[in-house]
Write a protein that binds this DNA or RNA. Structure first.
Lengths: 106, 106
DNA sequence: ATTAACCGTTAGAATCCACTAACCGATCGG
DNA sequence: CCGATCGGTTAGTGGATTCTAACGGTTAAT
């Protein structure tokens, strides 16, 4: 089942540090050092997170001298967004069905 | 950083079982028993996952006799989708910048 | 009242995850 | 060649997570 590979992709966004990395990369490509400088964890930790994000296909890297520039992969972001959008649209349909039935809320 | 609260929301989608639950609920509201019947884990585990999803605001529940009906919360789904969409749009902009300027530095 | 169905919660064990520290290779400037 | 900078990888540890099993509470029907 591809739900496992999907879970890896969503899991890549599940960590606070990785989410911060994605947010920073959204502003533009960055080297690992610059990235780590703005985060409360070591460069090593950032490197490990980048590996996870890269394996998930969310970021891409390019060598530039002694540094390595990372940037977001818009295609992967769009894929996840579209998946959420599908759930959202189908949830709205289920909502319409529930209008007929009574009771709700917590 | 309030990215911790965000991480909780994304973290709710990080688990394969929870992702399967969301996918099933997208087809329509379901009771816990029906939900667990189609999953390879116990009903107890499903109940715990539903609590996590509920705390994250992704699902809502309603009592119906002895059962409890769960359904997706379209608002929360849309919020996550929009966040991804923002990253995606800004990533595209960074993409365009990278085409013109080969290197990025301090 | 008693039984059955349905669900949430707890306890505990096994597993997974994020982090630091230390090390190694690759690259650039002298 | 040498030293410095940059980044990936490994080992090890503390904490978080997921699961099953067992229990208790609530509702519906007999």
């Amino acid at each position: 089942m591809d739900s496992n590979r999907d879970a890896d992709r969503w899991g890549a966004l599940a960590d606070g540090t990785r989410l911060a990395i994605v947010a920073r990369l959204a502003d533009g490509p960055l080297a690992v050092g610059k990235l780590a400088a703005g985060l409360p964890v070591s460069r090593s930790a950032v490197s490990q997170h980048l590996k996870i994000l890269k394996d998930a296909g969310l970021v891409q890297d390019a060598a530039a001298g002694t540094r390595r520039i990372y940037r977001l992969n818009p295609v992967a972001l769009a894929a996840l967004r579209d998946q959420l959008d599908t759930y959202w649209r189908r949830a709205l349909a289920g909502y319409a069905d529930a209008v007929q039935a009574p009771a709700e809320e917590d």
